[in-house]
């Protein structure tokens, strides 16, 4: 065992039905190739996915929870921004 931990990676899986990759969790790996293999072994055992993305966690920059009020609350009362006043034709999928 080494003293130093392997870096953490975030895993995104695209399922058969899904159109986009969804975050499913994280894991440790020494490099990107190993991270994808580990993701295959940890997160696609039950036919969950057809495509895997991994990104080293340190490259993910997140919004600060303390800013939540300033960031998100102002959108609360702006109902006119929602496109709910249109009828979507039947032929348009995935809306």
């Amino acid at each position: 065992m080494t003293q130093s931990e392997w870096p953490l990676w975030e895993v995104f899986i695209r399922s058969k039905q899904g159109l986009d990759h969804k975050h499913v969790g994280s894991l440790h790996a020494a490099d990107a190739t190993m991270a994808i293999q580990n993701a295959r072994d940890v997160y696609t055992r039950r036919l969950e996915g057809v495509s895997i993305w991994v990104v080293e966690s340190k490259h993910v920059h997140a919004s600060n929870p303390d800013d939540a009020a300033a960031f998100f609350d102002p959108a609360n009362d702006k109902v006119y921004r929602h496109p709910t006043f249109y009828e979507v034709p039947d032929s348009i999928k995935h809306m």
Binding site: M1, W6, L27, H28, N38, D41, V42, R45
Partner: peptide, 11 residues
């Protein structure tokens, strides 16, 4: 040695 490889070997 780590969870990920434990699973890989079980797979």
């Amino acid at each position: 040695p780590i969870l990920e490889q434990d699973l890989a070997m079980a797979n």
